[in-house]
């Protein structure tokens, strides 16, 4: 079965990103395909590599990056939501005249059409948020 997942809250404040991660991992472990994970609203904050949680806490951003590299997961951060919240990749930084970028490995910035496409292409779309 082909799943897609939408994450609408940032890391640490709300459990949504944790639950989405555990669900995605379990789906992959069960042999399902995960077509895309789409980050929207404050969920785009899951995509910054500047996160530095204390040693004894989980690293939510790294966890997503590692899952992406292990399973060639498509982690997409919504460009409009990302621009509002200061999540930028090198292209976006250049385009908007910013002095640096902060996108984490395995994440890419793209448009809302990627979410609609995920809804069309996948058998199930699950939303995690507040």
């Amino acid at each position: 079965m082909k799943f897609s997942v939408m994450v609408n809250e940032g890391p640490y404040t709300h459990q949504a990103s944790d639950t989405a991660y555990q669900f995605t991992r379990a789906a992959l472990a069960a042999g399902h395909e995960v077509f895309r994970v789409f980050f929207y609203h404050d969920g785009v904050n899951n995509g910054t590599r500047m996160t530095t949680p204390p040693q004894d806490d989980r690293n939510i951003v790294d966890r997503w990056s590692e899952l992406a590299s292990e399973h060639e997961l498509d982690l997409v951060v919504c460009v409009a939501a990302a621009q509002r919240r200061g999540i930028v990749d090198a292209d976006e930084a250049k385009r908007n005249g910013k002095d640096g970028d902060n996108i984490a490995p395995g994440f890419r910035i793209s448009g809302l059409g990627q979410l609609i496409e995920a809804g069309i292409q996948s058998d199930r779309l699950l939303v995690f948020g507040d």
């Binding site: 399902h32 948020g129 507040d130």
Partner: peptide, 20 residues
Amino acid sequence: VGYDGFVDLASANDKVQSWL
């Protein structure tokens, strides 16, 4: 159920509605 059971429920049903 565990997360594996969550995945099974999401597969067994034709769609999922999250009451956020």
